[in-house]
Amino acid sequence: MAERKNTPVDSGRVVAGVLAVAVLTVLAALNSYQVSQANAIQFADPYGAALAETRFAAALEQLPRDAVLAYVSDMRLGELAGTTAYLAAQYALAPRMVIPAEENPAAEWAVGNFSKPSDYAAAGAKIGFTMVRDFGSGVIVYRKAKP
């Protein structure tokens, strides 16, 4: 409920101050928008999450929805690029869980996320997986090699 205890304030000084706040706010909001617009052009999809969704889309049908996947990559997890690529891949592949291959030896399925062309089959074989399919742009699906 509005209170009536305080004396009303409606002097020229008050109106000037209040209108200054209104004008400055609109200018600040315009500035925020311009910064956002510039960032959107310069840093579109900065972590590659949207790109990962496109890259991994075709592989999703190959992988069971509740699988715990082993993760194989040529990007080191300890480095920013490797961490970002791993987290973007995890997001794109969810609800499947993705765990680095060395911590997930029991996995039936594995997914490869490579930054440059290489011998993908050999990379999988090194940790006991057979390449099932190369989906292009560095996305590979592997399955545990039968003994």
Binding site: S36, F43, A44, D45, P46, Y47, A49, A50
Partner: peptide
């Protein structure tokens, strides 16, 4: 603009 640039946040 922000959502257009980073739709997944």
């Amino acid at each position: 603009q922000a959502i257009g640039a980073s739709p997944d946040g």
